[in-house]
Amino acid sequence: MSFHDIKPHLPWITLLVLVAIVGVSHPNFLKPANLVSMVADIMPLFIMALGMTFAIYIGGIDLSAQSVANMTTVIATVALPGLGLGAALVCVLAGLLFGAISGFVTTRLLVPSFVSTLAVGGVAYSLAQYLSGQRALYMDAGLRDASFGWMIGQSFGIPHEIFVGGVLLLLTWFLQSRTVFGRALKAVGAGELAAAASGLHVGRIKIAAFALSAMLAAVAGLLFSVKLSGGSPTLANGFLLPAIVAVLVGGTPLTGGVGGVVNTLIGTLIVAVIRTSMLYFEVDATMQQMVFGIILIVAIASTIDRSKMRIVK
């Protein structure tokens, strides 16, 4: 059996190996309560990574996700007193708008996605600073529970964040695997020129992918805001690199056309185990971003389709 045959199975093999290593070293890690808590804690990151999957699936990247999530925490906190549950709609629409702008700049102005999304992320960050007055904001606990208590409660011992993430996973899986739009995304990721030659509206598809990415980043920000009962222009800082790592180690390469949202679930669980293991093994907090940076390089090197990249600049 060659490496090419094993490669599609590497994500879940990696996950099992990591769980075994941490479990043998620290048996408490395998307690069901600890595992459930770990999965619940990673849900905002998972939802952000779900959205990022669509941008990477078409061969792009969305560097605005973290800033959009930060902006959403502020919008949710500011809008909650006046709109109640309607604040969620405002957050989702804001994410869609910023993602569509990123897609428009990328497809119509021909700006590479890493530049366009980075710039749009800067706009989102500035808006968050303006709305928050450059300070942390806090939600009224009563208003939060009345409108969004269903997001952070528990049923049958399982935190509702896991149910939210599961529903979004099912919806995105259906969109990717069972719709014409999902097949169009795969076609664009596999070969943009061939997709355009076959009559697909590549520009519209890419705009929709970036809009979905930012929308799910906004949902992640909303969940994070509700969990922490507040908002800040920097509340979700530190999420961007792990979200990208989750998508790539899950098996969706930067060259696109392969992988998908189920792979991102596996990748996010790998990230969760790595984060938890660094706590168990007492890895200094300042070293954790370096660890994810190294993992990112390894993930890109091992998943990228070099047949699509004859020259690297």
Rank of each mutant, 00 (worst) to 15 (best):
G84P: 12
V74S: 02
N70Y: 07
L80S: 02
I75E: 00
L85Y: 11
A87F: 08
T107A: 05
A87V: 07
T72F: 04
V78M: 10
L89G: 09
F98W: 07
T107V: 09
V92Y: 08
A88M: 15
R108P: 01
A88H: 02
A88L: 15
A94T: 14
C91V: 12
I75C: 02
L97I: 14
V92L: 15
A69R: 00
F104L: 13
L97A: 15
L110R: 14
G86H: 10
R108Y: 11
S102T: 13
V78L: 07
L85F: 15
A100N: 07
T77A: 10
I101P: 01
R108N: 10
R108W: 09
L83A: 15
G82K: 12
A79D: 01
V92P: 08
L85W: 11
M71K: 04
A87R: 08
F98V: 10
A94P: 02
A69L: 04
T73C: 00
V78R: 07
L110C: 11
A88D: 04
I75S: 03
F104G: 03
T73A: 00
G103F: 05
G95H: 10
T77I: 12
L83T: 10
L97E: 01
L109A: 13
L93W: 12
G99W: 06
V92N: 08
T106P: 01
M71I: 07
T73H: 02
L89K: 07
G99Y: 06
V78N: 04
L93E: 11
G103A: 11
V74H: 03
L110P: 01
G86F: 09
G86K: 10
I75F: 06
T72R: 04
M71T: 04
V90C: 10
I75M: 08
L89H: 08
I101C: 13
G86D: 11
C91D: 08
S102L: 00
F104T: 09
A76H: 02
G99A: 12
G86V: 07
G103H: 03
L109Y: 05
G95F: 08
N70W: 05
F104N: 00
L97H: 03
T72I: 04
A79W: 00
I75H: 00
L96Y: 07
A69H: 00
V90E: 06
G103T: 06
